Amino acid sequence: MVKIGKRKEGYLQEEKAVQYLKKRGYRILQRNFYSRYGEIDIIARDKEYLVFIEVKYRKSERGGHPVEAVDVRKQGRICKTAQWFLKRYGYNQETPCRFDVVAILGDDVNLLRNAFEYQC
């Protein structure tokens, strides 16, 4: 078994998530958007929604399900980063937004739409 680094594994899993989302009609706008508040893995369009997407991967459930890693603290950082993105790129308050999570457990990819509400 070949062991790869965490960073490379993260990139590979994020790429898997991007391909999964594209097959479901998402249009990828940006990847790895950083602000002083944190990072958003993927920003995409899904019909009228601007979607901020967190990708979480686990080899197994031994360390918990991937969705569990998107706790309230992480959600807050994602919301603040999303707010900065909206301001930076001139989106108005009427822009419909959503927060999704792509949970990858082993080889299984699952999308949790509207995984949490905006909470800044």
Rank of each mutant, 00 (worst) to 15 (best):
Q83F: 05
Y89Q: 07
Y34V: 07
G64Q: 01
E94Y: 09
V109W: 02
R113S: 12
K47V: 14
S60K: 06
N32R: 13
E39Y: 03
P66H: 01
Y20W: 10
G64C: 02
L21F: 03
Y26V: 13
Y57I: 01
Y118A: 00
A82M: 14
R45H: 11
K80Q: 09
E14H: 08
A17P: 04
R98S: 14
L50Q: 08
I78F: 03
L50F: 13
F116T: 12
P96K: 12
D100C: 05
I53C: 08
A103M: 07
K23W: 04
H65T: 04
G38Q: 08
E48I: 15
R31L: 08
G38Y: 02
D71N: 15
R98Q: 10
Y49C: 00
F52H: 05
I78H: 02
Y20F: 15
R77F: 02
R62Q: 04
L86M: 15
I28E: 04
A17N: 08
K59V: 02
Y20T: 13
G63L: 11
E14P: 01
S60P: 13
D46R: 13
Q83Y: 13
R45A: 00
R88K: 15
G106N: 03
I28K: 11
T95D: 09
Y37V: 01
G38R: 05
V72Y: 10
N32L: 05
R31K: 15
K6C: 08
K59F: 00
Q75D: 03
Q75W: 13
V51D: 05
R113I: 06
N110W: 01
K3A: 12
F85W: 14
G63C: 02
D107S: 13
T81G: 00
E14T: 12
Y26C: 11
Q19C: 10
Y91I: 07
S60G: 03
R88D: 03
F52D: 00
Q19N: 03
I78D: 07
Y34H: 11
E39R: 15
D41W: 04
E39K: 14
D46F: 15
A69N: 14
I53V: 12
D107C: 07
R88M: 09
A17K: 12
D108V: 15
Y34I: 01
V55T: 09
Y49L: 15
Y118E: 09
E61S: 03
Y37K: 04
G64M: 05
D41G: 06
G5R: 06
Q13E: 15
V18E: 05
E61I: 08
V72W: 08
L105P: 02
A103I: 00
K59E: 09
Q30W: 06
R73N: 09
D46S: 14
D100R: 07
K74C: 07
I4G: 05
L112W: 00
K16V: 13
I42H: 10
I28F: 07
Q75T: 10
T81Y: 08
N114W: 00
R24G: 06
L111E: 04
K80M: 13
F52V: 05
Y91C: 01
G38S: 03
K3W: 12
